[in-house]
Design a protein around this nucleic acid. Structure first.
Length: 267
DNA sequence: ATGGCCGCCCTAGGCGGA
């Protein structure tokens, strides 16, 4: 009999500095599984004991000094843990594990720098090729992959829809919302017919998961973007139970600039 | 129109974030 489990995904912007808030999340929401991005800690510095003390006995992580880093924390056994690299870079952006036979992905897509031009900005070029790499792999292995149940979540660093940003017009040339990136994200989504869970439940409202640190009052201006996503394979549509964005976490003391996103599903 | 703030690392200014 399938059980309803709660999965959270959160770009913590440093696991070590955010430990207290991670604990707050675990007490408020008690997720069964937590996907983290931007842990910013090499593996020997990952606070494994602290995380286990919060009730997450099963922990998978892959980090490097200073940048990137992903993890999956779980109360349910993690199986078949593996690290995935894209565009030939070993840069700690993707970790995968199975929970009750469902494949859970924690993904951190490159931010892409300032200039939305792959010719003059190598970081933007990296972002595009990173997404293309995933799409090509998915397209080539679609038949095999379509048999699996998968949850694909993390900081995709792209707000694809007009109602995923505070101003579509103002952000058309700003990295995270440019048509060229959105095209790449759409290709990736189409490659396995991923269901965008946030929009499955709420197609119309403005939804954000990130607010800049630079805004003096994030709530007043509310200039957010929906950069963090939970996608599920179409064979999991009937398994979906709920979805929410923990916006109030942006008001926590010493917050991440991203807030946790939470999805319940039957697995 | 611009810059605003964070966190990291060979502890300090530069890099990356988005």
């Amino acid at each position: 009999m399938p059980q309803t489990i709660k999965i959270a995904t959160w770009n913590v912007n440093s696991i070590r500095i955010r430990l207290e808030l991670l604990e707050k999340l675990t007490k408020e929401e008690a997720p069964d599984v937590i996907c983290l991005q931007e842990t910013k800690a090499k593996n020997e510095d990952f606070p494994e004991n602290e995380v286990k003390a919060m009730g997450y006995q099963y922990v998978a992580y892959n980090g490097m000094p200073s940048y990137n880093g992903v993890a999956i924390l779980s109360k349910i056994p993690l199986e078949k843990v593996r690290v995935q690299n894209w565009v030939g870079k070993d840069d700690c952006r993707h970790i995968i594990a199975e929970v009750n036979g469902v494949e859970i992905h924690s993904l951190y897509v490159p931010a892409g720098g300032d200039e939305p031009d792959p010719v003059i900005n190598i970081k933007f070029a990296h972002k595009l090729t990173f997404l293309d790499d995933i799409s090509e792999w998915s397209e080539q292995n679609k038949e095999e992959l379509s048999k699996k149940k998968m949850v694909f979540c993390g900081d995709f660093n792209i707000a694809p829809l007009e109602n995923d940003v505070w101003s579509h017009k103002s952000l058309l040339k700003v990295v995270s919302h440019t048509p060229v990136e959105v095209g790449r994200l759409n290709r990736m989504q189409k490659s396995l017919d991923w269901v965008d869970v946030a929009r499955y439940y709420n197609p119309d409202d403005k939804l954000y998961t990130w607010w800049s640190y630079r805004s003096p009052d994030w709530k007043k201006n509310n200039r957010g973007r929906r950069l963090d996503h939970v996608w599920v394979t179409p064979n999991m549509k009937e398994d979906l139970v709920s979805f929410k964005i923990l916006s109030h976490a942006r008001d926590w003391d010493k917050p991440s600039d991203h807030v946790p996103v939470i999805c319940e599903l039957k697995i």
